[in-house]
């Protein structure tokens, strides 16, 4: 029980998972669907890299074959980077293996060869610890473990895809310059903002603070007023600024998950019962359209 199979199209996460395996004296094996990635992965301390070669550009389509491969290899765990694609592939493999799975872990350790997984449930309100005795699949986000180095061989394996789902078109979403993850001051705007134009008011405050703008899921995903990498929460970014100011953010647990490590949290909301006040150090109950100009002026 010591062969860990690893997949992530995010090579940084694959590298960290190899590091995790090494740190726990397990044997890391990596699978990839890209010849270019295989070359890079071959320097990251794994025992072997398997380049899985097939016709479909959708890696999810190989789930059934991968589960066969993992069985043949007598893998003890399958660890996958927690990206949208990784989660999907992982869950399908778990389905075909009829095994346990834990998603989006916040912690992962071995105790006496049992895998102990920690994850967050109820939108961020509760931490759950669970143990797996047998083969299981987990998905793991980046940033939990240290990568290592070391060369290994690449083995190419032909794999047949399930071609029922066909890719018609793929458009990359260009990643914009984004200083939010490292910003020391963050101003976050929620659905309390009435119009897209009013972002200029918020940006005025961001400028005097020399901070970064952020938002809740709805502002990015539904209204498209800010890019998606600007939204904070359990399905968005997790940040640790010195100062976080919420404007018209009700403070649902899924959002608050992303700001818990902030040093100081300030809430401005017109509803005195908004949950955000429970999570705040300082608050003012009132209309942000009146408060933002006052605050911006005072700071100027």
């Amino acid at each position: 029980m010591s062969d860990i199979y690893i997949y992530s199209e995010r090579l940084d996460i694959a590298a960290e998972l190899i590091g995790f395996a090494r740190q726990n004296h397990k044997e890391p094996y990596v699978v990839t669907f890209s010849a270019v990635a295989a070359e890079e992965l071959a320097n990251l301390g794994a025992n072997k890299v398997f380049y899985l070669k097939g016709e479909s550009p959708l890696v999810e389509n190989y789930a059934k074959q991968i589960s066969k491969f993992l069985k043949e290899q007598a893998a003890s765990h399958f660890m996958v980077g927690a990206t949208a694609r990784g989660r999907d592939l992982a869950a399908r493999v778990a389905g075909y293996m009829d095994c346990g799975m834990a998603s989006d872990l916040s912690g992962l350790t071995y105790v006496d060869d049992e895998l102990i997984c920690e994850r967050i449930i109820y939108g961020g309100a509760v931490r759950q610890k669970e143990a797996f005795k047998d083969f299981c699949v987990v998905t793991v986000p980046g940033g939990l473990f240290e990568p290592v180095q070391g060369d290994c061989e690449i083995f190419t394996i032909d794999l047949k895809a399930d071609e029922r789902v066909v890719l018609v078109e793929r458009t990359e979403i260009p990643s914009r310059g984004n200083d939010l993850p490292t910003a020391s001051k963050v101003v976050c705007v929620g659905l309390g903002l009435a119009e897209e134009e009013d972002l200029s008011l918020v940006n005025g405050l961001v400028d005097v603070l020399e901070g970064e703008i952020a938002c809740t899921r709805g502002i990015a995903e539904e209204r498209h007023w800010l890019p998606v990498e600007r939204y904070i929460g359990i399905s968005g970014a997790v940040i640790k600024p010195e100062l976080y100011i919420a404007l018209g953010v009700s403070g649902q647990i899924q959002h608050v998950y992303g700001i818990r490590e902030s040093k100081i949290i300030v809430a401005i909301d017109k509803n005195d019962k908004a949950p955000i006040f429970r999570y705040a150090d300082y608050g003012i109950v009132g209309d942000m359209y009146e408060i933002i100009p006052l605050l911006t002026d005072l700071l100027n």
């Binding site: 869950a91 778990a94 389905g95 998603s103 967050i120 359990i234």
Partner: peptide, 8 residues
């Protein structure tokens, strides 16, 4: 929020 059910 496991995002597992549909693929499984």
């Amino acid at each position: 929020y496991a995002r597992q059910t549909a693929p499984r």
